[in-house]
């Protein structure tokens, strides 16, 4: 699979009753990379993962994973993929160890290999102390980690992780990120859905934003951020300061639409060359006798991208637009 992508899907459609869960979804992940799939609840992320892991047949469209058709070559494909679904699929009445060992046996490992793998993985996921307890006694995060351990039994070439760190504490989440990075550096391709945009930012080489079963934006994290806008200066002036004057001072620096929240004395200005401009703005404000309570240079985060693309409401209600300008997409903090 030297030149072909590890995961490719074109025009996937899937309908549940009146819900069009997938509406012509295209995606592509090059071998050895992480594809991040972002999208609000109900966007169709899990449905896409189900189709790509052979659990569900698409109504239309086609997809290949590791060079194999997800419908026609489903049987062969199952030995090439690992799946950790959105809800931990572990057996409550088995111990952690028994769960992983069983999955090893079902991947057709020998008894000794399955046991050794179970030991290694439980250690890797910090579950050694709980290994001999039934999963019923595990916390949500522990189940999640066990589920991931089970999906890694074979270190499959292509791994699907549906919200892998939902419900993990920050330490476990960092640990999970390390595990994923390590797998990728060893050549595994990962498709990762997540609600944590920071996670996509950290891990994903390429990100697609899905809404209503379709890709509405894609690119690297940086590309997506630039799509929403570049750097911007966010400033809060002191009580009683002349906001109109401050707005006039800022106008020449603005490269786009400026937003002013008069009541909160808050101004947001998209700027071109961040740092120098910040210094210049501070000097000018000082000269004009305008007190600055707070000023910061901010890059848009993936949260801004997400909110602006998926049309979520922002708390920009109190932002009055400076004359002839519309409010910025994205919400000021």
């Amino acid at each position: 699979m030297a030149n072909q992508p590890a995961i490719i899907a074109e025009g996937l459609r899937k309908r549940y009753g009146t819900t069009q869960a997938l509406d012509g979804l295209d995606l592509r992940a090059e071998a050895g990379t992480v594809l991040g799939v972002l999208g609000p609840n109900g966007a169709g992320k899990t449905t896409a993962v189900r189709i790509l892991t052979t659990l569900l047949k698409p109504d239309a469209g086609y997809a290949r994973v590791a060079g194999l058709d997800v419908v026609k070559d489903a049987d062969a494909l199952r030995s090439q993929i690992g799946l950790a679904g959105q809800y931990a699929a572990v057996d409550e009445n088995l111990t952690g160890y028994e769960n992983v060992e069983m999955v090893g046996r079902l991947y057709h490992l020998s008894g000794s290999a399955a046991r050794r793998r179970a030991d290694e993985l439980l250690q890797r996921f910090d579950l050694v102390d709980a290994a001999r307890r039934t999963v019923k006694t595990y916390s949500g995060g522990m189940r999640r980690r066990l589920d991931l351990a089970a999906s890694l039994v074979m270190t499959p070439p292509v791994l699907f992780l549906d919200e892998p760190t939902t419900g993990l504490d920050p330490r476990s989440r960092l640990g999970m990120w390390e595990v994923i990075s390590k797998l990728v550096s060893d050549g595994t391709t990962v498709l990762l859905t997540t609600q944590y945009l920071e996670e996509a930012d950290q891990l994903a080489n390429h990100i697609i934003v899905v809404n209503f079963g379709r890709v509405i934006a894609e690119g690297t994290a940086d590309e997506l951020k630039t799509q929403v806008g570049g750097d911007r200066v966010e400033m809060t002036v002191g009580p009683g300061s002349d906001i109109t004057r401050a707005t006039e001072i800022l106008r020449p620096y603005s490269v786009g639409e400026m937003a002013v929240a008069a009541e909160r004395r808050h101004l947001i200005v998209p700027v071109a060359a961040g740092a120098q401009q910040l210094a210049a703005i501070i000097r000018e404000m000082d000269a004009a006798g305008i007190a600055i309570d707070d000023i910061a240079l901010r890059r848009p985060t993936l949260d801004d991208v997400f909110l602006s693309l998926t049309g979520a409401t922002t708390d920009a209600a109190d932002l009055t637009t400076a004359p002839a300008e519309r409010p910025l997409a994205g919400s000021p903090r």
């Binding site: 057709h108 793998r117 290694e120 476990s172 390390e178």
Partner: peptide
């Protein structure tokens, strides 16, 4: 979590047996 090298060793290869064998063994 400590990051052990993932087991790419030979022994984590699946065993090859005829289909009927696995129908029974998996059951």
């Amino acid at each position: 979590m400590n990051i052990a090298a993932p087991g790419h060793g030979n022994s984590t290869k699946p065993i090859i047996r005829p289909r009927i064998y696995w129908e029974i063994a998996d059951a």
